[in-house]
Amino acid sequence: MANHGNHAASGAHGHDHGHGGHHDLEALRQMGFWLFLITDCILFGTLFATYIVLHNNTAGGPTASELFEMPGVIAETFILLTSSFTSGLAVLCMNRGNRQGLIGWLAVTAILGAAFIGLEVSEFLKMVDEGAKISTSAFLSGFYTLVGTHGLHVSVGLCWMIALMFQLRKHGITSVTRRKVNVISLYWHFLDVVWIFVFTIVYMMGVM
């Protein structure tokens, strides 16, 4: 983010001439990613709106308070919040030029992310087992789609993070890999914020 601010000042002519070009190019890409996050915000906003409109339409199927088991959800929440913290530590290592630390903290982040996905999948499987399927009611359609889209985002982030660890091992910390780490950490924090909304609107308000 700090990087981004600096470039905004010098960015009146962001394109490349001579050899200083690469640096500016990375700033452009980071800005592009911020815009992508705006679009992703709207994507989730639309899913939340749909869920809120449909969440009482249980059509005789299970309701939110009958279905949700909070201990598992709270565990997921803490795991994901911790992973956001460790992805921040990874960026700090990168800024100090510590490649080993960077890869290590990214690995911890990825493991926490995988644990989150594991818990979520087992939660979904258990619910389906109890007869709460996506085709049971409009409420469950909205629930699985909203929470599942978040889970899909986390999974994509995981694959991306692993790919990035290989690239860091090969190329070290360069202006390109630095931008890539910054971008994935932005993405990861963003998913964390979305989860806070999922936790509040779907789970907390569901069981209250």
Binding site: L43, T46, T50, T58, A59, G61, A138, S141, G142, T145
Partner: peptide
């Protein structure tokens, strides 16, 4: 648009009920 079409597809593909007439769809 992306979300809207995706939801319609989930309705058609997985039998969900976002926009159907039954099971609470709207």
């Amino acid at each position: 648009l992306t979300v809207t079409l995706a939801l319609l597809f989930i309705d058609r593909f997985l039998g969900a009920h976002f926009f159907t007439l039954d099971a609470g769809g709207n």
